[in-house]
Design a protein around this nucleic acid. Sequence first.
DNA 1: GTCCCTATACTCGGATAGCAAGTGTCCGAGTATAGGCGG
DNA 2: CCGCCTATACTCGGACACTTGCTATCCGAGTATAGGGAC
Lengths: 164, 164
Amino acid sequence: MQLGEGVEWTLHVCALLATLPEGTTLSARRLAAFYDVPPAYLAKQLQALAATGIVATVRGRGGGYRLARPAAEIALLSVVEAVEGREPVFRCAEIRQRGPSAGPGMTFAPVCGIAAAMARAEAAWRAALRAQSVADLVAGMQRDVSPEQRRRARAWLLTSQRSG
Amino acid sequence: MQLGEGVEWTLHVCALLATLPEGTTLSARRLAAFYDVPPAYLAKQLQALAATGIVATVRGRGGGYRLARPAAEIALLSVVEAVEGREPVFRCAEIRQRGPSAGPGMTFAPVCGIAAAMARAEAAWRAALRAQSVADLVAGMQRDVSPEQRRRARAWLLTSQRSG
DNA sequence: GTCCCTATACTCGGATAGCAAGTGTCCGAGTATAGGCGG
DNA sequence: CCGCCTATACTCGGACACTTGCTATCCGAGTATAGGGAC
């Protein structure tokens, strides 16, 4: 079981978009060049973010993506769910109700105990993701990355788009 | 992202094996019949459990599987890791170090902030799974399932193996 | 009747196909910009 | 010189191939049992 690459990509993108000046956007092509990932595939992942309202899109020449709301109001859980879907990680097929021991007229507990146990763990995972926001990521990066490197990245992002 | 069916199957199997009398075993064929799942595929999942020492195997006629240690000492995390693998759910490809902004001589934080955030969530998930044991599953089932149904299932499990 | 031997039936274990979902790509719809033209 | 029109270039968005890993299966290795035969 593994999360798709889109999760890592979109989280990085959200953190980067959060540092943009107001009213600015970044195109999928430019973002893909910045991270050296397949442009078309990254665009597909960003579509999912746009569909759930995490990022807003500006179409046409000079358009691109920007955060739809403040970074502090975007939980990591929202991004993960947007890309990976909202369905639970553990799917209960109710095998307890199958087989010879499950004859007609048999009653079962409303929810399978195993499904409940897995759901508890999953709830802890979701709670941890819900407690962290994109703003936290930005804060962490601004603490870890040197100012020189931030300046360099910012300069590249502001260069003409023909260099991509 | 979804866990394989093997997780649900093996958890049910562990809970069932925990209720067996000492010195008894259940074969993969019999377990598959009990839950109405593909026998060969269930056997494959049980191999993973045997490889990590969760269940012990008895080969030859009349053999089968039994728990290798008390149910209270088998955390759900052990079962999940045995079937799904120990690799982290979120894989960090270090895309922060790629692209044009990552020139030579650039230094990065020891761990990516995004990877750290995802690791925190995953740690919460693992902790919740580690805090619950197979014995807890058994206790929950004995509380929810009616005695009549338990008797019926037990009777089926003790019947001759030719009826499979 | 008792012991031993053999054949059997049942078990686990790993190697082998099929399929779904994630991965990657492409082309069409849409829009702000840039340039040219007319007034 | 100013405003309008058109062509363009760039953008997002959804539809179409490909690859990896999950799903499912089969056959071989191994062992306790059951039965028959010899003593």
